[in-house]
Design a protein around this nucleic acid. Structure first.
Lengths: 245, 245
DNA sequence: ACAAAAGTGTTCGATATACACCCATGA
DNA sequence: TCATGGGTGTATATCGAACACTTTTGT
């Protein structure tokens, strides 16, 4: 006998990635065919989520879902909000889709939202017969259920958090250039920074450590590589006891 | 027939208040007697929470719980985290307590945490046979279930939020003095501000509006009263596109 | 007159902002 | 040699931090 699922509690994961230009999100295509036919009734996109097992921690469930999609462990996984609106599964397409599963799941499902940060959009996404792909967060359309709302909230949290904590580095390769870092912050915050001022600021973050390495094989002056040191961050970071309301 | 409860999903509310000196939290005493006897087996403290109804939104459930305790509506209610650890109800005291209810509730309950901000600790708390009282957040001991963890997380969120958004005013009377405001921020952030610098900063917040009124009946120079204008805040506030990691 | 809290200004150092040119590499 | 992105410094304005005395009221 397998593990038992909770029929009314799920976890949904918003998987973010950065491709050196844009912030992207990993979505799965959902296609509904007419019974015993090839005729497509509708097709749309979903975040990835699943019901939790009765003997499974919430964080474990989130890790399982992301692992199932990426094969990666030890990613940043942050719970950001829980969604339980009564009508969150009531769109006709969703009703049609859920009918397939009969009475396995409850009509009222509360879902706990997590987001995850991938260091690249080049990880080999695991397809398993699904169509999984990266979409620029600003161009996402046609999401199932309340996933548009979930994505929006995840983005808000990411923006909020990235301004005060060094989580942005999770979206960069271990060794990165300052231009990559700047582009990342610009993409997440939706703004532009002056190159010199940005670098001045970063040079004061002693947990962004310059390496003795440079880019190779680029058709221009190769950039110096940096890495983020959580060690140095934890040791030197002081809470700003200021407020900016 | 009454409304049906979800047996495995609840909402817990952390109700904060400020008494001009300390940040406080509203807790309910829980006393377990031996069956058919006056002998007390244990006594401890809980946040207030309850299972949600099948036809009830999460926010509604939180509002209901706070209303049940304070008789107040329209309070700030902010969802901050969801707790679902497998062992969160497994302390012997909690097991003993829950036995009373037989099989009504599931052994695995996921609870959605909300916090609420009361403008005073002088609201008439509704007792209904319970022992409800304010406790200074720094001196809370002896909490049931995982409520210590929930309180800690609520505090973290409150501290985080109060530094960047004007929610502190929800904990002050509509008309307040700058000293009250300073004490509030000091209590929440656990720090001290210089009076002149604090006032200089506040004078730049044009949404903290001076009134033509002063304190009356105080045995010292009466302070000017101020109020917070959300209108002005919404109109003039700009997102700081800066980052301070 | 005294106790108690309100209210107020200046100096100094640090940080944000604005802005333009030369450099190293591969093709 | 050219195209591409990498890398750098200065001047000005704003903001934060430190610091002590006078004012107004009630008793």
């Amino acid at each position: 006998m397998g593990r038992e699922l909770m029929n009314n509690i799920s976890v949904d994961c918003v998987v973010f990635g950065f491709d050196s230009e844009q912030l992207k999100v990993l979505l799965v295509e959902r296609t509904m065919n007419e019974a015993n036919s090839d005729k497509i009734l509708f097709t749309d996109l979903t975040l990835t989520g699943y019901h939790i097992y009765k003997d499974e921690e919430l964080d474990e469930a989130a890790a399982r879902i992301v692992f199932d999609l990426t094969g990666l462990n030890n990613l940043v996984l942050e719970q950001f909000y829980t969604f339980g609106a009564l009508d969150r599964l009531e769109h006709p397409n969703d009703q049609l889709w859920l009918e397939q599963f009969g009475d396995v799941f409850s009509k009222r499902v509360v879902t706990v939202g997590y987001y995850s940060l991938l260091p690249s959009t080049e990880v080999p996404v695991i397809q398993k017969g699904r169509k999984v792909a990266w979409y620029p967060v600003n161009e996402v359309r046609n999401l199932a259920y309340d996933h548009e709302q979930i994505l929006k909230k995840a983005l808000e949290h990411l923006r909020y958090k990235v301004r005060h904590e060094p989580i942005g580095f999770e979206l960069l390769p271990v060794k990165f250039t300052l231009t990559q870092m700047q582009k990342l912050y610009e993409a997440i915050l939706g703004t532009q920074f002056d190159k010199r001022n940005f670098r001045k600021k970063v040079s004061q973050m002693n947990y962004v450590v310059p390496l003795k390495e440079k880019q190779i094989g680029v058709a221009h002056k190769p950039a110096q590589l940096f890495m983020f040191s959580r060690d140095v961050y934890d040791k030197t970071h002081k809470e700003r006891f200021d407020f900016f309301i």
